[in-house]
Write a protein that binds this DNA or RNA. Structure first.
Lengths: 244, 244
DNA sequence: GTGTAGAAATTGGTTGGACCATTGAGCCAT
DNA sequence: ATGGCTCAATGGTCCAACCAATTTCTACAC
């Protein structure tokens, strides 16, 4: 079954060598997200490779979302980097129809419920306070801006994923989120999209604060159900065009 | 709610333009995995960009596992490419420890249960027959080879994901599966890994055939639980090294 | 004719140097 | 202080080579 961990050694692997050295440097210097790392020219000189090679290596990290390049400014770390890191690029094919939207929600339904349950189990006082903070910000934005609180809403959810203790939840759900919003270029649908989900944010939080995993799971499912409902209503409203 | 579709316009985005053009070319020519795509030099000439830029673009695709470069031979497609693709690089920090294994299982627990439930709802006679076939193959392999049936086991599960009607399940769980097995370089753990999960394959199938979504979900959860249990037992068995 | 070793062409990998576009810091006049 | 200016630093692009692995072609021996 196992395909032997033997990777066919490549005669030329300067890129990887550069990345390994750079990862070592990052760990040694204890650099974290936001920190700026050496100039391409400096790296090229220090590592005794061409600047072009350095660029290809950094391009890989950029593609992995580990690093952000700002022209005229520098290259900055965007995530935690360590030597023993596993990268698993996943490419999802999408379609622009109602079905695809629903499919992203089916994934979210499964993951969101599990993350909420895990969060309820593992959240400590600090994490609960943080989630409460995000919840208050979101509720306030919701009231002052009459429902326009997508940004704060998303941050509230993210704090839950993080507290689940499993980084994969945040990464995968974030991908679903992006996939969903990429198809949502046309807000022709329901005008008050998201209103129905509002009350469940607080009920989810209360279950988490009470360390009630099954309750949190149930409330998360209810929340997703309202979104699915909104979506179906929107699709029915304009079932004239773009159905296929 | 939307965070303003205004993406910070980037003056320079030659790389992306190259990839977009190349994706269009691949679709137009109906190229699939294994096919060879134009030389870097030719692409540079045709697209009126430097070969260097072409290389950075291809490096991105290579990092995403979409393409494979063979020096002296050419660049070959390794996966399906379409214009509307979402690339989601998953990064799992921490390396070779027990925690990472468990994290992939937490994701599988959520998705596997949901997929089984959806499958029970949506499976028709044809799909049920196909799943039954895979189940029989797997059970036979299990008995004749004394438990070594990982390949057939996986195919059985895949047929369930496909029948769920949502391709995202198969893609994401496949990623988790690969992630899991990449950590599993050391079968030092439990000798009869997977034995405990065997009976639940048939119970899951029976629930699906009976169109019982909640039953299928429950059985899927039991199956994952046995795997988690095996894993914990294996970890306890060699808790001397590599625990951190 | 056939097979094989070696030359030649092809192709990705690397190098070094140059220039452009953007950013940010310092400076100066208002 | 503020706004605009210059100017150095930095990432982005381009070019023209050359290196290394692979493939293809060719000529020679049999």
């Amino acid at each position: 079954m196992t395909e032997f961990g033997l990777s066919p050694i490549q005669a030329t692997a300067r890129d990887d060598a550069v990345l390994k050295a750079l990862a070592g440097f990052v760990m040694q210097e204890a650099l974290g997200p936001g920190h700026k790392l050496p100039t391409e020219r400096i790296l090229a000189e220090r590592l005794k490779v061409s600047r072009n090679t350095v660029r290809e290596a950094l391009t890989r990290w950029e593609g992995l979302g580990l690093v952000e390049r700002r022209q005229g400014s520098g290259t900055y770390l965007k995530g935690a980097v360590s030597l023993d890191m596993l990268h698993m690029p996943l490419t999802l094919a999408g379609g622009n129809d109602f079905t695809s939207l629903m499919q992203t929600l089916e994934i979210r339904r499964a993951l969101e419920a599990e993350a909420a349950a895990l969060c309820a189990v593992r959240a400590g006082q600090t994490e609960i306070a943080e989630i409460a903070r995000k919840l208050n910000i979101m509720e306030q934005a919701f009231h002052t801006r009459a429902g326009m609180s997508a940004e704060e809403d998303w941050e509230f959810h993210q704090s839950i994923y993080r507290t689940s203790g499993n980084p994969l939840f945040e990464q995968i759900i974030a991908a679903m989120h992006e996939l969903f919003h990429r198809f949502w270029e046309h807000p022709l649908g329901v005008r008050d999209f998201g209103h129905a989900s509002f009350p469940f944010h607080r009920t989810i939080f209360e279950c988490i604060a009470a360390h009630d995993p099954e309750g949190a799971r149930a409330e998360a499912l209810k929340l997703i159900a309202t979104v699915e409902d909104d979506l179906k209503r929107g699709a029915a409203k304009l079932k004239l065009s773009g159905q296929k």
